[in-house]
């Protein structure tokens, strides 16, 4: 690449109040990390509710967890970890100026995220079919415990909020994909890919905790 065009590109993405690209990149990344802090505490409230109720009703969690399908939970874990890998690969492609690599990796990530949501959809409908609805609409009688509805309220809140985050992630990935097709990203400027990647990895991490806490109670 010729010298002047690199310089032009550099000025193109640099906003007026930053001194240089590095300052802008580091600021964006720190901003994303702070946002992730808020996400952790946001889910933290739910985890706290989970811990309190599990400490009160350990036998309920043992009984109710049997009604969640460990196999599909495990499959979803694998799906999300794979999508984390492809996001990391997309960032690597951007860092190395491999335009095609960014597009392919983002596309696979989006596909995997859809697979995750489809599996989640089947898990939910299966439960709705037997009357395991959240909260007051809970009508299932297969679990011999008075507070069975609470386990599933927590389950739906946690996986539901996580699912919303996956959907938001899909939206962001599609936006990145469209920009990548226009060749917006390069080793000079790939901030949006990097920080969306951070977000996506956090969604993965939260699932890493949800899976053993909800599905794997033996």
């Amino acid at each position: 690449m010729e010298q002047p065009s690199t310089l032009e590109k550099k000025q193109d993405h640099l906003q007026h109040h930053f001194v240089d690209s590095d300052q802008q990149f580091e600021s964006a990344k720190m901003g994303m990390w702070i946002f992730l802090v808020t996400e952790i505490l946001f889910f933290g409230g739910l985890f706290a509710a989970y811990i309190v109720f599990r400490s009160w009703y350990p036998e309920l969690f043992l009984l109710a967890s049997d009604h969640l399908d460990t196999f599909w939970g495990a499959v979803n874990t694998v799906v999300l970890i794979s999508s984390s890998l492809t996001v990391a690969m997309a960032i690597r492609s951007a860092q190395l100026n491999q335009q095609k690599g960014i597009i392919i990796n983002l596309a696979i990530t989006i596909a995997l995220a859809f697979v995750f949501m489809v599996i989640k959809y089947f898990e939910y409908t299966e439960k709705f079919a037997v009357g395991i609805f959240p909260g007051g609409y809970y009508t299932y009688e297969g679990i011999a415990h008075d507070q069975a509805n609470i386990f599933f309220s927590i389950y739906y809140m946690m996986t539901g909020l996580h699912g919303i985050h996956v959907v938001v992630g899909i939206g962001l990935m599609v936006w990145l994909l469209l920009r990548a097709r226009k060749g917006h990203f390069s080793s000079e400027y790939y901030t949006p890919v990097e920080i969306t990647g951070l977000y996506w990895h956090l969604v993965d991490i939260i699932w890493i905790f949800l899976f053993p806490l909800l599905y794997l109670i033996d």
Binding site: G44, L46, A49, F53, P134, G135, G136
Partner: peptide, 17 residues
Amino acid sequence: AITLLLLTMERLLSIGI
């Protein structure tokens, strides 16, 4: 945020937490 969301859900779906 999560507290108020749970409260909203409590009113909407009676989640019972």
